[in-house]
């Protein structure tokens, strides 16, 4: 039982990396970015190939983040410079990435048991002693989720971070501040998708595999966690957005695990996610409507 709880929380922590990315596009930029379904497996594909070829496990994270950034750049470029609608720009990149991911990995790819990952390697083993793998996974994931959160919190307080928030809030203002709003949006997509690919990379380390279809529905998962997180802490304005989505991600994974434990067939998971997500959106809209009427 305890093991199940720990592995579920670990999942929540790993996927929080993806949630941060979706938080940036959906909440800050107001951009429904479907690239996520492609950049998540992209990170995993790159990681799987590199691990199989004996690269340093930590180095794979850096490379995954960089290729994810490229994917975000593509979507941004298509949207901003080629004037394609936000949803379509994401769909185009996502579709292209499906083939690209298969090109990178060859096919679905498994990483052998003997290969070092970020959870099992001399450095982590040395630091954490002979702790069981389950706990090592928890601690490494917690470390990653927190360090990325702190970096983002710092970034949002910088001048550049303020500008990123401004472009989602009121892009006309960014123009009058003598900044090209298009490039600011592209930058946001770059950061978001590098985080999503990073999540894909960590998942690949954790599962020791890449599957071409592992991206399906990740955007809906991301949106759900962002909305759960921000709704939970709506009344507490002192809670940072990144903290909210981190908790949202863990809460979501726990809910799903409970549903599976109660006998929900895993094949129905995505259906349930979609229905839940719709329900959250509708409730959110109804609340917004009430506020508008009240105003």
């Amino acid at each position: 039982m305890l093991e199940l709880v720990i592995s579920t929380v670990t999942q929540g922590l790993i996927f929080a990396l993806l949630s941060y990315g979706v938080y940036i596009t959906y909440k800050i930029l107001d951009f429904p970015d479907l690239t996520v379904d492609g950049s998540f497996p992209l990170g995993a594909a790159v990681t799987a190939v590199m691990l199989v070829n004996g690269y340093n496990p930590f180095f794979t994270l850096v490379v995954a983040a960089v290729v994810g950034a490229l994917a975000g750049f593509c979507t941004g470029f298509i949207h901003v410079k080629l004037n394609v609608r936000d949803l379509l720009a994401g769909i185009i990149t996502m579709t292209a990435l499906f083939s690209i991911n298969l090109q990178i990995a060859g096919s679905n790819l498994a990483v052998g048991r003997n290969v070092d990952t970020i959870f099992t390697n001399p450095l982590v083993n040395g630091l954490l002693g002979n702790m069981p793998l389950l706990y090592r996974k928890l601690i490494v994931s917690l470390f990653l989720a927190l360090i990325v959160k702190l970096i983002l919190d710092f970034y949002f307080k910088t001048k550049n971070g303020l500008l990123l928030r401004a472009v989602g809030d009121n892009d006309a203002l960014v123009t009058t501040l003598a900044k090209d709003k298009g490039w600011v949006k592209i930058l946001g997509l770059v950061i978001a998708n590098s985080l999503v690919a990073l999540a894909g990379a960590v998942v690949c380390h954790e599962q020791r595999s890449f599957a071409a279809t592992m991206g399906t529905g990740q955007i809906v998962f991301g949106l759900a966690t962002v909305i759960i997180g921000t709704t939970l802490f709506r009344k507490m304005s002192f809670v940072k957005g990144t903290t909210a989505v981190l908790i949202g991600s863990i809460v979501y994974k726990i809910c799903i695990q409970i549903a599976i434990s109660l006998g929900l067939p895993p094949n129905l998971l995505k259906l349930i996610t979609a229905v839940l997500f719709l329900a959250i959106l509708v409730i959110g809209n109804m609340e917004k409507g009430m506020v508008r009427k009240g105003a």
Binding site: Y155, K157, T158, K159, N160, G161, L162, L163, A166, L173, T176, L177, A178, K179
Partner: peptide
Amino acid sequence: SLADNKGKSFGLSHGI
């Protein structure tokens, strides 16, 4: 703070 920084670069120094 945003308005104050108009025309300058929006880098990674503290926003406020």
